[in-house]
Computed example of a mutant assay.
Amino acid sequence: MREIVLDTETTGFEPSEGDRIVEIGAVELIGHMPTGRTYHQYINPQRTMPAEAFAVHGLGDDFLADKPLFKDIADDFLTFIGDAKLVIHNAAFDMKFLNAELGWLHKPALPMNRAVDTLMIARRKFPGSPASLDALCRRFGIDNAARTLHGALLDSEILAEVYLELIGGRQPDFALAQGSADSTQKNGAAWRAGPRPAPLASRLTAEETAAHTAFVNAMGDDAVWKRA
Rank of each mutant, 00 (worst) to 15 (best):
E52V: 14
A53Y: 01
F54R: 15
A55I: 01
V56K: 03
H57D: 00
H57G: 04
G58H: 05
G58P: 04
D61R: 03
D61E: 05
D62R: 07
D62N: 07
A65S: 10
F70G: 13
K71I: 08
D72W: 08
D72V: 00
I73G: 12
I73D: 03
A74E: 07
D75G: 14
D76P: 14
D76F: 04
L78P: 04
L78T: 04
L78G: 03
I81S: 04
I81E: 00
G82L: 06
D83K: 13
D83G: 06
D83Y: 12
A84G: 12
A84T: 06
K85P: 07
K85W: 02
V87H: 05
V87L: 03
I88K: 04
H89L: 15
H89Q: 11
N90Q: 05
N90R: 00
A91T: 06
A91S: 13
A92D: 13
F93D: 10
D94E: 02
D94Y: 05
M95L: 15
M95D: 08
M95Q: 14
K96G: 15
K96L: 14
F97L: 09
L102D: 11
G103D: 09
L105Y: 08
L105G: 12
L105Q: 11
L105C: 11
K107I: 14
P108E: 09
P108A: 04
L110F: 05
P111W: 07
M112Q: 15
R114N: 11
R114D: 14
A115W: 03
A115M: 13
A115Y: 06
V116L: 07
D117A: 10
T118F: 05
L119C: 02
L119S: 08
L119V: 08
M120R: 14
I121K: 10
I121P: 05
A122L: 02
A122N: 11
R123F: 09
R123G: 09
R124E: 15
K125R: 14
F126Q: 06
F126E: 06
P127A: 01
G128M: 08
G128E: 03
S129Y: 12
A131C: 12
A131G: 06
S132D: 06
S132M: 02
L133A: 13
D134M: 12
L136A: 01
L136M: 09
L136P: 03
L136D: 00
L136N: 00
L136E: 01
C137R: 07
R138Q: 15
R138K: 14
F140P: 12
F140L: 05
F140V: 03
F140K: 07
F140W: 01
G141Q: 05
I142N: 00
D143I: 09
N144L: 14
A145D: 14
A146E: 12
R147E: 00
R147G: 02
L149I: 03
L149W: 01
H150Q: 08
H150P: 14
G151W: 04
A152N: 02
L153P: 03
L153G: 07
D155F: 02
D155S: 06
S156T: 03
E157V: 05
E157N: 11
E157W: 06
L159M: 13
A160W: 02
A160E: 04
A160Q: 09
E161S: 10
V162N: 13
Y163W: 12
